[in-house]
């Protein structure tokens, strides 16, 4: 399968994003685009370990938090926030390896439970540790320019988020065409059969998890530089982990464009409800979102993009159309 259509689609998104970054003055629209891209990155990060590899993570916020806290620590200690990108990535990858090593070779839900437990530990640790700002978190000192990774307008932030999104999508296109991508899909489909062709489950999944954490951390750095304020509820909370997982599920697990589609639904829905109902509508978006998730779980367990891929395959005749053919879900 050729990557060309995906590269064209990504190119079109980048062009559109750049037009928005340089052409649009409306801060609300730019904020929407930035948030959308950030969630798409987080969704894709989650998709590596939970979609392609098939191990559901409920603690992805902590990797996002690694980047955000790395950024806050760098800036408040007078270091360049650019240093937070590798530092946050290392911390996130290390956390991922520690969480994944004992659990990624096991059957059942140990991994998911471990992610929840580690996330709770990390959040509590941040809440109670003075050098991590305790419950108050950090306010980043105001600065300006590329060296400080801070800007008075939102345009440059959109450009940065776009670059990160493009990098993550390119990495995922490469993953789908790599040994690791084939191995992860094989493991998700059938771990015993995968071992019988020589696939080392723990090794493959640890690599995927470390990369996944690295991507989320990069999004965290960008988020901290954008909001200039971080605390445990905004970066480490379970609610954020759940949001990330839901974006992945709604869009379609294990698909290239699923996380972006999921993020679009999530962000547009939240904004639409906020605009329509204002402050009184707080929570309505979650109700509608919950309903959509119920519908997807009941009717289309592959999510939005998974359903489209299925339809294309059906047309090409690679799936027998008949009862049960589509009902089989990956184990």
């Amino acid at each position: 399968m050729t990557a060309r259509p995906h590269l064209y689609a990504l190119g079109a998104i980048v062009v559109l994003g750049l037009l928005a970054a340089f052409g649009v003055r409306d801060a609300v629209v730019l904020d929407l685009v930035f948030t959308l891209l950030l969630y798409a990155v987080l969704g894709q990060s989650w998709n590596w370990i939970s979609g392609y590899a098939g191990n559901i993570s409920f603690g992805h916020a902590i990797f996002f938090g690694c980047g955000a806290y790395a950024s806050a620590l760098c800036v408040t200690h007078g270091l360049t926030p650019w240093l937070a990108i590798p530092a946050g990535a290392l911390a996130a990858a290390a956390l991922a390896l520690v969480t994944g090593f004992p659990t990624l070779g096991l059957r059942g839900h140990y991994f998911s439970i471990a992610t929840i437990a580690v996330a709770a530990l990390v959040e509590t640790f941040a809440r109670t540790t003075p050098w991590l700002g305790k419950a108050n978190g950090f306010e980043l000192p105001i600065a300006s320019g590329w060296a400080a990774l801070q800007f008075p307008q939102k345009g440059p932030y959109v450009v940065l988020a776009l670059a990160l999104f493009a990098a993550v999508q390119l990495a995922t296109i490469a993953l789908e065409r790599s040994r690791l991508g084939y191995y992860l899909r094989a493991l998700r489909a059938n771990h015993a059969a995968a071992a019988s062709v020589g696939i080392d489950e723990r090794r493959c999944k640890l690599i995927a998890f470390a990369w996944s954490a690295t991507m989320a951390s990069a999004a965290g750095v960008l988020y901290a530089q954008y909001t200039l304020f971080i605390d445990p509820p905004s970066t480490l909370a379970l609610a954020i982990s759940i949001d990330i997982a839901l974006i992945g599920v709604v869009g379609g697990i294990g698909t290239l464009w699923g996380p972006a589609a999921g993020a679009l639904v999530y962000v547009v829905l939240a904004k639409a409800v906020a605009l329509r109902f204002g402050g009184a509508g707080k929570g309505y978006d979650l109700v509608i979102y919950g309903a959509i998730i119920c519908l997807i779980a009941a009717l289309r367990p592959y999510g939005i993009v998974g359903t489209i891929v299925d339809a294309i395959r059906r047309r090409r005749g690679s799936i027998a159309v008949g009862p049960g053919a589509a009902a089989e879900t990956p184990a």
Binding site: Y182, A186, A189, N190, A193, A194, V197, P330
Partner: peptide, 17 residues
């Protein structure tokens, strides 16, 4: 024990890797 959501070619490629 097939790789249910892989094509025949993808499944055999996985072995060949």
């Amino acid at each position: 024990q097939t790789f249910a959501d892989m094509t025949v070619l993808e499944a055999v490629t996985t072995g060949a890797l």
